[in-house]
Design a binder for these strands. Structure first.
Lengths: 213, 213, 213, 213
DNA sequence: GCATAAACGAGACGGTACGTCTAGTCTTACT
DNA sequence: AGTAAGACTAGACGTACCGTCTCGTTTATGC
């Protein structure tokens, strides 16, 4: 398999017939639809092409394989994630957790995420693609949330930028990890009650969830 | 696909040539080896059979498919996870996190876990198998850890058994989720420093990681 | 493409499931049918497989490609060529020419022969296959015809076996070549009148066809 | 496929940019080169275009497909065939046979001829093109040869023009057929010895090749 | 000298077939 | 009955060409 066509080589990007933007849209939409109906493992390139009303070659001209295509197709779904402003850190985190969980309930996201991550364990390029297309999109929300909480006076300002980055990363992994694990591995619902308990744990620690009388 | 051969039907288990236990071991070992070399998506039943010096039929007589085989092959790896007793809850959690992360660094675990989870999003039977073979094995450790901490007086006893169960589940999802996410999605190492920061967050909350001067 | 699977490797020909003779017959029949309907260039392996009610792999397990398959499929048609015994060399040759022409009129033979020969100009193995499967089958008829004519006293016995072989080859190329060329290149019919003129030319030379009064 | 572009439609042939004669030459040369290297079946329009330093569109503007292109590319090779005048019919025929055989030894002619003929069995238009471009070019030689032999008194004049035409056609099919069959089907060389034996057969018949003592 | 009209290069497009691979089943003969 | 071997159906894979199309550019003429 060729590494990653994807980006048209810049220098001679002006000559020849230009790529159809219409096709791009149709393919990504078809991919999401197929993902919902069939799941990752039964989704085939040929089927996506047919649904999109496009030739298989047109897919392969843009994406190197199933993984790359699905990452791009699913990435846009994460754009709808926005940080709510409910006036307090607790409320914001709870709402955020619920929104993220709702996204993971959707069948196209469910399978896609884990499958793509699994595939990425063997493929650095794919890992980077996931980071750029999905992970970084979410990480921004943590940074926004912290900034807002600091502005409200709910969190202190961290002087050392390295420590600040570390903390943001840590909190991001804890939130995303817990929600993903609960939803996909434990396979149990993230409901408002769970979100409340989780938020309390996140903000005040394990000792806070079973408060000493 | 036949549902799940797996266990030899009990009644007539005595007649005919008995199944080779040697074959079982060889197959599982071959599966792990193939997983390391090829990763989930390029691992094939035929290849595993060849490596194990066994006919494909023999595989299908014992497992219904790739997913089931891999789950069983990988499950034993989780048996080596044991809760250390280092005298304090903090030390125990930190050590546990590091051991779990070390397990996830190993290539056979890396790919297998996520891939199998991805596959399971569409398959309730597989989900159950994962729960029994892998998830529950880990969850026990959380319960052990809590019991030990309660014995030491580091954690209060929870009266309500429902609440107790909820809390154990929550803490399990947070620990496992954070480590898995850090390792496989963020693709960054779980080193002692991260383990320390994470443990502090887990026990005392977000406010504790950037302590107010 | 692997060179030429075709013959099952002899040594271990006893173990495993034996090849289906039924499939062989169905495939060759389907190939001839497809050849009639579609012609060489539009005949596809996939289509033949479908017609034969067989998987594509089953074709490729036996034949290396289209050319090899078609040669074998068409070869049997040449088995029906038999030397008539009409009592005289002239009558025998005329009848033979007409039968051979009739064979070449059939659509499956028409395209197949030339196309396969064309393909063979680049492929020694294929050339050999054609020789064994088709050419030698026809050459025998020339030898039979000569022997019969010699027995009748219509032709002298040639003492030198090398000269005898040369002559047989020459006559074979002239008969087969003329009929093929007339039929496929000049694209004109080989009717009894042409057969009579040709036979006179063959037996008595160019000067005999326009006899001096 | 559009029927046969080939000739620029006459009416508006004067306006717009004229077709490049340079391109025509380059394409035909490239076709012959590709034919030598790759043979008919592996020759592709795209490859010919690249070799000729020309866009694929430029090919399709002139020829309807591979067959048409190859016929034209190969046809010129037959122009070099000329009837030698060695003073006697026997010598002329022998020389002619050797020249024709030499032409068929050349790889571009070898494959092209048979492949194109094979293709033509399903395509009347292509058949006509072959007749005009190749076959008729050769047939003239037979007519020339006969006229010369008649002038020399080696052959009688045929009164009936229909019979004369029939005879010319017959002799043409026998000569061309025998040489082509010997070269491409029997895959054996046409050397001077064979040419001598063939000529004797052609002029005096089968009884002459193994002369009665 | 400037518009017109066709040819040109490049390359994307919808298709079709290729030959390979894997899944999971079935058929032999052997253990 | 279990087993190794290997043939079987089914269907996806990624590639290669086909012949067409759509660009932007070039090159003749004719007004």
């Amino acid at each position: 398999m060729r590494s990653h066509p994807d980006l048209p080589t810049e220098p001679n990007a002006r000559i020849g017939r230009p790529r159809s933007a219409e096709a791009d849209r149709a393919i990504l939409a078809a991919t999401r639809a197929a993902l919902v109906e069939l799941g990752w493992s039964k989704l085939t390139m040929g089927d996506v092409a047919t649904r999109a009303g496009v030739a298989k070659t047109t897919l392969y001209r843009r994406w190197a394989g199933k993984s790359e295509l699905v990452v791009d197709a699913v990435a846009v779904l994460f754009d709808e994630l926005e940080l709510p402003d409910l006036g307090s850190l607790v409320a914001d985190v709870e709402a955020m957790v619920l929104r993220f969980a709702a996204l993971l309930e959707r069948p196209e996201t469910r399978t896609a995420m884990m499958a793509v991550v699994a595939e990425a364990t063997r493929d650095e390029a794919l890992r980077k693609r996931i980071r750029v297309a999905i992970v970084d999109r979410q990480k921004v929300l943590v940074l926004q949330g912290r900034a807002r909480a600091q502005a409200r006076g709910e969190l202190p300002y961290e002087r050392d930028p390295v420590t600040a980055a570390h903390n943001a990363d840590l909190i991001f992994d804890v939130i995303a990890g817990a929600v993903v694990h609960r939803t996909l591995v434990s396979a149990e619902p993230v409901d408002p009650a769970w979100a409340r308990r989780f938020t309390r744990l996140l903000l005040h620690g394990a000792s806070a969830v079973t408060p000493r009388p």
